[in-house]
Amino acid sequence: MARFTPDNLELAHEIISRYPRKKSAVIPLLHLGQEQDGYVTNEAMEHIAELTEVTAAEVIGTCTFYEMFKTHPVGKYVINVCTNISCQLNGGEELLEHLEETLDIRSGGTTADGMFTIEDYECLAACTEAPCMQVNYRYFHRISNDEVDGVLSDIRSGKLADTIPEHGVLQRVRQTIPAGKLAGIAPPETVVDAPVWMARNEPILAARAAAKAAEEAAAANKATEATEANEKGDA
């Protein structure tokens, strides 16, 4: 229930460095805090405020907008069951009910042993594979009640430990940008000129402008010629 550990602090600095403005790192850092503690703690939010140079009120304001950030402890395994329209048509609600009965909690609640939290979730983007659910944001498609029971017991026995990390861990592979390969990330006010490769446009745009000018001149000539011809004709 804490500020970032030294390792995470180093990671936090790296994350912040990827953005032209520090505040952009707030959401990734909230994920990092949740990964560290299992949920987003007040201390983590205060630390994030310091690192991104905003107030803690701004951090909690952002944090509480988004569903994935839990500001209170949740189960080790958060089960999101989609009940939106495509899944509702194909057994999503029944799946949720089954889980509620099996685990003896209502959606939103956590089992007494702290293992599972169930959530009645919105569309998980697996609509053709209904009914679907996620456990700690790892997908299960076209899952039957029996299969759900199998998953729960596999989790309990540790069989799925490699597949499903504990709550808070999202990506187990992180983006890293080696310093030598970085194109360069700068605050917008420091960038004044066009990127260098845009210079390749110059000859083409110049040619087009010239062609357009020539075309307009030709059209203007034609117009004057026509008028002159008319006048001659009238004379």
């Binding site: 803690a56 009120a57 909690i60 304001g61 509480t64 907008f65």
Partner: peptide
């Protein structure tokens, strides 16, 4: 002094401070 802020979302939005600040 951005010490108060919208929190929550949608119909559950409220204005509040950070706890203990």
């Amino acid at each position: 002094d951005p010490l108060i802020h919208f929190q929550g979302r949608g119909n559950q939005t409220e204005v509040n401070t950070f706890p203990d600040e």
